[in-house]
């Protein structure tokens, strides 16, 4: 465990309470009742849709979803219907964190005042990167700070994909979006590096005792993290990498390949922060160069070797922080 990030909430006084965590051992052991059912207008090969499905499999029947505006609202409900077999409510892209705060407060009060005789439900906000790291950040922060017993998930497809692939704070350096088109004046397209959302949430919200990154390419890991997060009393946060065939320009059959490649190159890392302690869940045996990830996607088609090097340097610095900076083997 690297010394450098030990301070992340580890000194906070709140106690950690975990109840009813049931681990999924492998794919065969996974629950098989679907609460995110077929019949939604997401893209063929949609990464966020798979993230939703896996989350719903893990969280089960006693769950309420809130869905801020984004692909997972518009595509899922395009025709005045929705594919969730559990309660779902639309929220504005701005206020997912606040709406789940209200739902949670309502259940606390109603159970205490004996207006509700069911069990306290799992309350999950399933927000895109815009609804989490950008316009929804204030509501996310308020929710995490206040200590509500909820899970906030950011499904990260690294752009405003619903409106047609516009840059968000999670869009990687060098990506072509329709708001960052590369041209002679701006050869790299997206010029800035993304926010570190998990670190932001971890560092400034002492009530949050469980945070995790996950990827749809590692479904069992993802489902277990959802369950762990829900088992923790209090606010928890997950950041799920969800490749987007439309926005990143790759073939719809390659969604999981791209997700794996992201982890193998260090563009994405799988780790948890449990009560301030960082735990890396997966370290690729053979680290691959970022160039391989870049070449697999149309959104990076314009990058020069120098730009790819800048991206590599950024990735190296992030990996160093997690103690994962191993040499890239020669091809």
């Amino acid at each position: 465990m690297p010394e450098t990030i030990k301070w992340l909430g580890s000194e906070a006084p709140t106690e950690v309470r975990i109840e009813g965590y049931q681990e999924i051992k492998n794919v065969k052991d996974a629950p098989d009742v679907e609460y995110y059912v077929p019949g939604h207008r997401t893209c063929a090969g949609c990464g966020p849709a798979l993230a939703y499905r896996l989350t719903a499999l893990a969280s089960g029947k006693n769950t309420i979803f809130a869905g801020p505006t984004g692909c997972m609202y518009v595509a899922n409900t395009s025709y005045l219907c929705g594919p969730w077999a559990v309660p779902w409510i639309h929220t504005q892209i701005t206020n997912g964190g606040a709406v789940i705060s209200g739902i949670e407060a309502s259940y606390k009060a109603m159970i205490r005042k004996k207006k509700y005789d069911g069990e306290f439900p799992n309350i999950i906000c399933f927000a895109g990167d815009g609804g989490s790291a950008d316009i929804g950040l204030q509501a996310l922060s308020g929710c995490m700070y206040r200590g509500h017993d909820v899970l906030f998930i950011c499904y990260d497809n690294e752009s405003y994909a619903n409106t047609g692939i516009q840059t968000s704070p999670m869009t990687p350096y060098g990506a072509h979006t329709t708001f960052t088109p590369p041209g002679p004046v701006v050869p790299e397209g997206k010029k800035t590096f993304p926010k570190d959302l998990l670190k932001m949430v971890a560092a400034g919200h002492p009530a949050v005792k469980y945070l995790a990154t996950a990827s749809i390419a590692y479904p069992v890991d993802l489902m277990n993290k959802v369950r762990k997060a829900l088992a923790h009393k209090g606010p928890t946060f997950m950041h799920i990498h969800a490749p987007c065939p439309k926005g990143w320009a790759f073939e719809s059959s390659k969604t999981l390949d791209i997700g794996k490649l992201a982890v193998d190159t260090g563009m994405w890392t799988l780790y948890e922060i449990v009560n301030g302690q960082v735990k890396v869940n997966y370290a690729p045996r053979r680290r691959k160069p970022v160039a391989e990830y870049v070449q697999a996607q149309g959104r990076f088609g314009h990058l020069t070797p120098e730009m790819t090097e800048r991206l590599q340097a950024f990735v190296d610095s992030k990996l160093a922080e997690l103690g994962l900076l191993v040499p890239i083997p020669a091809v």
């Binding site: 206020n95 606040a98 709406v99 209200g102 407060a105 309502s106 509700y116 509501a139």
Partner: peptide
């Protein structure tokens, strides 16, 4: 307003 919307939607 968002908090009370969510809470009202849940029945409070």
């Amino acid at each position: 307003l968002s908090v009370v919307l969510g809470a009202s939607a849940a029945g409070a």
